[in-house]
């Protein structure tokens, strides 16, 4: 049985989907009964999502894309 410490130690891997299925199952057993860890998990997940959307607005300039297309024959 995971306690809060086990859970917190694995939170990065959980949000990054790097845990094995049995570990995911075990951690969810803990999350189901621990409001504090669940909140912590949601927060970490939310932060990861925020980082992703914050950066994905950056796109390569069209001129560069066109140049590379010609170079690669794509």
């Amino acid at each position: 049985m995971y306690d809060c410490e086990d859970c917190i130690r694995r939170l990065d891997q959980l949000v990054d989907k790097e845990l094995s299925p049995p570990e995911v199952e075990e951690i969810h057993v803990h999350l189901d009964e621990c409001g504090d860890c669940t909140k912590r998990y949601r927060f970490q997940e939310g932060l990861k999502r925020l980082v992703k959307v914050s950066y994905q607005e950056q796109k390569a300039p069209d001129a560069l894309r066109e140049r590379l297309r010609q170079q690669l024959g794509a």
Binding site: Q58, K59, A60, P61, L64, R65, L68, R69, L72, A74
Partner: peptide
């Protein structure tokens, strides 16, 4: 080319 935005 499909990876261009990520590379940039």
């Amino acid at each position: 080319i499909g990876n261009l935005d990520a590379l940039y």
